[in-house]
């Protein structure tokens, strides 16, 4: 293991994680609270991207409805909170459960299809949840809803930005750790084998559908977790957190970072937000008002990466995908 710790990519990854871990201290030192809030959001979206990578990267299943898990996780927290149940011990398991049940439902139907139909069905299901959220007038409808943060009395105060960041960071590390183990496990090999050649795996005796279904449940739970964290980050839920644009953003993060590479989604989420946060003021500097159209630059950048760096940022750093 020791020689693997000192390759350039391992060094960069380690540096990145250390930087993310130290962000609350850095933010305090430079007196800029905004970078901490951006950093926390990067960590949360990285968790969501890691979860998408489990099925998109290792499973080859292009889910275009991943934001629904985030939305369900977030709304579970928000709805419970609005009804006076503030305890995180109740909210969080309920949220993860809800996201997992939704994953089971969507997967059981969508996994019967392939290719573009799979993409369309996962998108359709996600839109269903999106419009359901929009229609929940009691919980803010389109405008969203301000909520109280989850309470873990005596353990951690989520209102404290630094503590909350560290909690998110620890959960990201846990997700990355799990993803690493998962990809090398017997289960992960079956999933990757089915990505490579589904018919062959069935002929070998693997009930591919069941394995994929379970992968979707796991990914759904992690997606729900990201939603729980996102709701707590802004103390706010809204349908926007589960719009199809967010599902697309997540795919972009995974592709940008490196499909089927454990740390790929982390790179992807980081690159995504850093580009957004630097392109906006950068363009505004060129000409006031241009910042709004940052995606005009971002889009072609993505095209270039898709054409010239097939394995995303991870491949530029020398990662091989699993």
């Amino acid at each position: 293991m020791s020689e693997r710790l000192f390759t350039p990519r391992a060094l960069i990854t380690t540096l990145l994680l250390v930087l993310l871990a130290a962000l609350p201290l850095i933010a305090q030192a430079v007196g800029d609270r905004y970078i901490l809030s951006v950093g926390t959001r990067i960590v949360i979206w990285a968790i969501a991207a890691v979860s998408l990578n489990m099925i998109l990267g290792y499973g080859g299943l292009v889910s275009f409805g991943h934001a629904a898990f985030i939305g369900i996780g977030g709304y579970a927290v928000g709805i419970l909170s609005a009804n006076g149940i503030q305890s995180g011990w109740v909210q969080w398991p309920a949220a993860l459960m809800a996201a997992t049940v939704w994953a089971a439902l969507v997967a059981a139907l969508s996994l019967r299809t392939r290719g573009v139909y799979f993409i369309m069905i996962t998108l359709a299901f996600a839109q269903l949840v999106y419009y359901l959220g929009s229609g929940l007038a009691a919980y803010g409808g389109d405008d969203g809803l301000n909520i109280g943060r989850s309470r873990f009395t005596g353990l951690i105060d989520l209102r404290d930005k630094a503590s909350f960041h560290w909690l998110c960071f620890a959960l990201l590390c846990a997700a990355l750790w799990f993803c690493g183990r998962f990809s090398r496990s017997p289960f992960g090999h079956v999933l990757r084998g089915a990505r490579s050649n589904e018919g062959r795996m069935a002929a070998l005796g693997f009930p591919v559908f069941r394995y994929r279904l379970v992968a979707c449940l796991i990914a759904g739970a992690f997606g729900g977790l990201a939603g729980v964290l996102l709701a707590n980050e802004g103390a706010y839920i809204s349908p926007a957190m589960m719009s199809w644009v967010k599902s697309g953003d997540l795919i972009v993060m995974v592709v940008l970072g490196g499909i089927g590479v454990r740390f790929g989604p982390l790179y992807g989420a980081l690159a995504f937000f850093v580009l957004e946060e630097s392109l906006k003021p950068g363009l505004d500097l060129l000409h006031k008002g241009w910042g709004e159209y940052w995606q005009i630059v971002f889009g072609p950048l993505l095209v270039i990466i898709a054409l010239h760096a097939k394995g995303g940022i991870a491949s530029l750093l020398g990662f091989r995908h699993d």
Binding site: R181, F182, R184, S185, P186, F187, H189, V190, V214, I218
Partner: peptide, 13 residues
Amino acid sequence: AHHGHSFRFLADV
């Protein structure tokens, strides 16, 4: 494929 199920998520092959 013939050694029971493969729902083992953490073992390293």
